[in-house]
């Protein structure tokens, strides 16, 4: 018979325990800065890494400060009501008007056209990838979507201007301009398909198998399971992905600059040239604008509007995905 290890009990056992606990607490425990075993080099590294981590906070602070500083300067010269209460924009003319709604109109229209293209394509792709696709197909399609997401936006701009725009002119007649909101909107839509597809797919795959199996056991078809069980269960994630995609479409710059034309006007239709907030920033940056001029300052006021809009949408997306998440076990 093998010799048994001596059993410790009573006070002896407690002593060993407390000794071990003390050893862990004072010498070994890795998760307590300063109290674990650390050499001077280790402490130095810790400090350096801490600084790099806080840098990201300073980036945010930097962005906000830079934007606020020039925006305040701008509103000293132009009253708020002229900026938010007008729909006329003519920053480069002698008689300057700064009605931001003209730019918001262009931005909103292109982003909405983009969503109209991207939501069906993206959701279909997501449902297909998560519910229908065999693993091998999925392994091929998903990286391809990533490639689509990695194409530079200048390339999409070229595509919109020289490939889509001529087609639109063939369909709607040659009096449609070569620069129009529709072609820009379509490529923006293509650009945000991967965001909707991959984020929605992640949300759908997170739905537990048991829900699907339950539905199948009740005799549902695969489509019923996809559309009536999985999609509602993953609804918060899907909505969050759409909001994020919308925010990306609003912030998208080069394609809309190239294909959208430079016509900041409130109330024009999708077949006419428009100008988005981002395109306006590019236009003003390309010219040599003196840093003391009002055109330079309005750039930051528009950027501030853009920043608040996209940040707001990102926060809403996070809130939606957490607040309306269906919790399973």
């Amino acid at each position: 018979m093998a010799a048994q290890a001596p059993r410790m009990d009573g006070p002896e056992r407690d002593t060993v325990r407390s000794l071990l606990a003390e050893l862990w607490r004072d010498r070994l425990q890795p998760s307590r800065p300063g109290s674990g075993r650390e050499t001077p080099v280790g402490r130095l590294v810790h400090g350096v890494l801490f600084v790099t981590a806080t840098l990201s906070a300073f980036v945010t602070i930097g962005i906000v400060l830079v934007l606020i500083f020039e925006t305040v300067e701008f509103f000293r010269q132009v009253p708020l009501i002229d900026f938010f209460g007008s729909t006329k924009w003519s920053a480069l003319f002698a008689e300057k008007q700064f009605g931001v709604w003209a730019l918001v109109w262009g931005t909103g229209m292109i982003a909405l056209i983009g969503l109209a293209v991207a939501i069906p394509l993206g959701l279909m792709a997501a449902v297909f990838l998560s519910e229908y696709a065999p693993p091998r197909v999925r392994a091929v399609v998903k990286p391809m979507l990533e490639v689509l997401a990695g194409v530079p936006t200048v390339v999409f701009g070229y595509f919109a201007l020289l490939s889509i725009s001529p087609v639109i002119r063939d369909i709607f007649g040659q009096d449609v301009g070569i620069y129009n909101a529709l072609s820009a909107g379509i490529v923006v839509g293509l650009m945000i398909v991967p965001i909707i597809a991959s984020l929605s797919e992640d949300a759908m795959r997170a739905v537990p198998r048991s829900l699907r199996e339950g539905a199948y056991a009740l005799g549902s078809t695969r489509m019923e399971v996809s559309l009536r069980v999985v999609l509602p269960a993953a609804f918060s994630g899907v909505v969050a992905s759409i909001i994020l995609a919308f925010s990306r479409a609003v912030g998208e710059t080069m394609a809309v600059t190239i294909a959208g034309g430079g016509n900041p006007q409130f109330g024009v239709g999708p077949l006419e040239a428009v100008q988005t907030m981002t395109a306006m920033i590019v236009q003003l940056s390309l010219g040599d604008t003196p840093t003391t001029s009002i055109e330079f300052k309005v750039l930051f006021a528009v950027a501030m509007t853009l920043f608040v809009l996209t940040l707001g949408m990102n926060i809403v997306a996070q809130w939606v995905s957490q607040r309306f998440r269906e919790e399973y076990e």
């Binding site: 945010t60 930097g62 962005i63 830079v66 912030g251 920033i281 940056s285 853009l306 920043f307 990102n314």
Partner: peptide, 15 residues
């Protein structure tokens, strides 16, 4: 950090 990833690139340009 996750919010910074969502800031439009042109705003980094102004920064």
């Amino acid at each position: 950090i996750s919010n910074l990833a969502g800031v439009p690139s042109i705003i980094y340009g102004l920064l």
